[in-house]
Write a protein that binds this DNA or RNA. Structure first.
Lengths: 343, 343
DNA sequence: TTGTACGCGTTATCAT
DNA sequence: ATGATAACGCGTACAA
C-alpha cells in the first residue's frame, strides 16, 4: 500500500493471479472479461493502489490525454473563468488540462510546442492572437489547436470567441441612445484583432447613427489600466474632450475612470464610460461599470469541444464560433451634461 | 522536415550513419563522442527536426524535467507574480513549469498526483494550505513538494512564504501609532494558517501597546471581497464600531472599503483601512490602499530553489523560509476622528 | 570511440 | 475468456 515505487500492472497481475493482458482488459474493456476474474483484478488494484502509468500508456498509444492551455498572461482577469469552462468540458471527455505560461516569450512558447511534440499533450488551446512559437518554420506541421478569446493571426487555427463587433456596437448604441455625439474610442490597436473588431463596431454604430467620426478622439492603447489613464490625460492636453469614453476593455475603462477621478470629475454626470469584458472588478467600481459581458465559461466549453472534435475527426466542424456578447447596464453611463461645450 | 510523424532517434541514426547509442551520446555526453561524428549527428538532427520524445525519455529515466504547480485558484491576484519567480528559477536549471488548476477539488488534486506518479513531473509546488489530494492514504508516500505562500498543514512539507506575523504586526503598529485603539480584525480563520498567523501578529501588537482586546470586533472571513463587505454590515448592525479595519488580505480590505463607501463614509477621515498582500489593484483603489507587500517574485524563486535542492539532495536544507514583508504606506490610514464616539 | 541489446509500463495482436 | 509477446522511443551497461 505504501511501497516506495508505484505499483505496476505486473504487481496487480501477480496478486490477482492473472496475466497483465487480463488486467489491462479488465480496466479498459470490462465486458470482455469474466465477472469472477474482474472481481479479483479489482481487488488487486485496490490492494496495490495501482494507477496506470500515463507515461507508458501514452508512449504505447502515441497520444496523451492531456490538453495544454498556452497562455501569455495568467494574470489576465478574463483567463480563469474561461479556464473553468475548458476544464469541465475536458474532464467530461476524460482529458486533463495543463497550463503553460509563456509570459509572451516565444522561447517559452517553443518549449510548450516541444511538450506537445513529445506526445505529452494531445492538443493545444491558444490564448494569444499570434502563434506563440516564434517563427514560421513551425507552422509547417501545426499541432491540433484551437484559439480562444481572440483569433490567431497566422496558421488558420479555428477560433472560439465573442462577436466583438456586435458587442462594441451594443456599447456605442447605448451611448448614442443616451444622446452622446462625441464618443471617444480608447484602445485602438493594430496588433490585436479582437480590439480591431471592436473598433469596427464603434465605426459602424457611428455611421448608422449618422454621427460624424472624429479621429482626434480615437486613441491608441494596449488594454492596460495605465493606457486608459494616459488617454484621459492626452485628451485633456489636446483639449478635444468627448462626452463619453468607449473603452476597448474593462482595464482601460478602469484607467479612464481613475484618470477622470483624479481630475475630480464625476461619472456619469460629467462623462460616461463603458468597458468590454465584464471582469470581476467591474461590478465593484464606483460607479459600477457598464460593460459588455463575455460568456467566458461558455467560450471555454465550446473551445474545448471544438478541440476534442478536431482530435477525433481530424478536422473541426466549424472554423470560427462567435458567441453573443451581452450588454450589462450599470451606473457609469448617463445622458451627456447639457452644458458640456462650456467647460 | 515536415513528415507526418515526428522523427525518432532511429531516423537520426540512419541519416548520420551511426547507431542510436551514438546519437544519444552526442546529445547528452557530447565530450564522449568524436568531433566528426558529432558533426554528422548534429546535421542529421537539423535535417530531421528531431526532438527527443520526453515521454519515452522519462519512462526510461524514471523522472521528468517538468515541475507541476498545483493551484486551487488561478484567479488569485497573488498567483501570477509568484509564478514568474517559480518559472525563471526553474528555467535557469533546465526545468519546465506546468500548472494544474484544482478549483479546490480533491478529485482534481488526485489527478495531478497521478500525473506525478506517472513520472510526468519531477516535483510539485503546492499553493494550498492543505494537501490537495483528499484523504490521508496519500500521505504515505508524498512526492517531492514545496509549499508556497502559506504552510501546508498535513505532511511536513517545506514551505516558503512571508513572515505573516511580522507583517500583521507592522500593520497594527501603524494603526496604533496613528492613535487608533479600536482596531477591528477582519478575516479571522481557523482553516488558513497564514491568516491565523496574521491574527497572532494583531494580538501581539495590541498586547505590546497595552490595548485591551475586544473579540467583538474580530470577525470571521474567507478573504473574499464579499466577506469584507459583510463584516462591515455586521459591525454596523451590532453597533460595535471600530475606528480602523485591519484586514487579513487586500481583497477583504477592498470589500470593507466598498461597504464603507456604500454607507457614505470617507476613508481615511472616518475609518482607516489596511490590507495585506499588495495586490495590483491596491494602488488603484480610491483612496489607495495602505497594505503589506509580499515579495512575490522572490518567494517564487526561493520556493523553486528549495524544490530543486530537494530533488537533487533528497532533503531540503531548511524546512521553512520566511521572507520579510514590507509596509506600503498609501492613503487609507490616518488618525481616528476626534469625535468618533458620538457617531 | 562506437555498437548491441535490454528494459522502462502499457496496449494490441495473435494464439490458445 | 485468457495468456504470451511484440512494439512504442529512449538511455545505458556491456561488449567490441
Amino acid at each position: 500500500m505504501s511501497n516506495s515505487t508505484p505499483a505496476t500492472i505486473e504487481d496487480v497481475a501477480r496478486i490477482a493471479e492473472v496475466s497483465i493482458a487480463t488486467v489491462s482488459r479488465a480496466i479498459h474493456m470490462p465486458e470482455k472479461v469474466a465477472n469472477s476474474t474482474r472481481l479479483k483484478v479489482n481487488q488487486a488494484i485496490a490492494i496495490t493502489g495501482y494507477t496506470t502509468n500515463a507515461m507508458a500508456r501514452s508512449l504505447r498509444l502515441g497520444r496523451s490525454n492531456m490538453i495544454l492551455v498556452v497562455a501569455p498572461d495568467i494574470g489576465d482577469p478574463n483567463f480563469s473563468n474561461i479556464l473553468i469552462g475548458l476544464e469541465n468540458e475536458a474532464r467530461a471527455h476524460g482529458y486533463g488540462v495543463l497550463i503553460g505560461h509563456t509570459q509572451n516569450d516565444a522561447q517559452r512558447g517553443l518549449e510548450y510546442l516541444k511538450f506537445f511534440n513529445s506526445n505529452q499533450a494531445a492538443g493545444l488551446i491558444l490564448f494569444t492572437g499570434i502563434l506563440p512559437f516564434g517563427h514560421q518554420m513551425v507552422t509547417a506541421q501545426l499541432p491540433p489547436s484551437v484559439g480562444v478569446f481572440e483569433p490567431v493571426f497566422n496558421g488558420g487555427i479555428p477560433y472560439v470567441g465573442v462577436d466583438d463587433m456586435e458587442g462594441a456596437r451594443k456599447a456605442v448604441d447605448l451611448l448614442l441612445a443616451e444622446g452622446h455625439r462625441k464618443i471617444a474610442f480608447i484602445g485602438d490597436s493594430r496588433t490585436r484583432l479582437a480590439y480591431n473588431r471592436r473598433r469596427q463596431g464603434y465605426d459602424a454604430g457611428l455611421d448608422a447613427a449618422g454621427v460624424p467620426k472624429d479621429t482626434r478622439i480615437v486613441l491608441e492603447g494596449d488594454g492596460t489600466i495605465e493606457s486608459g489613464r494616459h488617454a484621459v490625460e492626452q485628451l485633456f492636453m489636446r483639449d478635444t474632450l468627448p462626452t463619453a469614453f468607449m473603452c476597448v476593455n474593462d482595464q482601460t475603462a478602469i484607467g479612464v475612470m481613475i484618470g477622470l477621478n483624479a481630475r475630480s470629475y464625476n461619472i456619469p454626470q460629467d462623462f460616461s464610460v463603458t468597458g468590454f469584458d465584464d471582469v470581476p472588478q467591474a461590478v465593484f467600481m464606483s460607479p459600477s461599470l457598464t460593460t459588455i459581458r463575455q460568456p467566458r465559461t461558455a467560450i471555454g466549453k465550446q473551445a474545448m469541444a471544438l478541440l476534442l472534435e478536431l482530435l477525433s475527426d481530424g478536422r473541426p466542424a466549424e472554423t470560427e464560433i462567435l458567441l453573443r456578447p451581452d450588454l450589462v447596464v450599470r451606473n457609469s453611463v448617463s445622458a451627456p451634461p447639457r452644458n458640456w461645450q462650456k467647460r
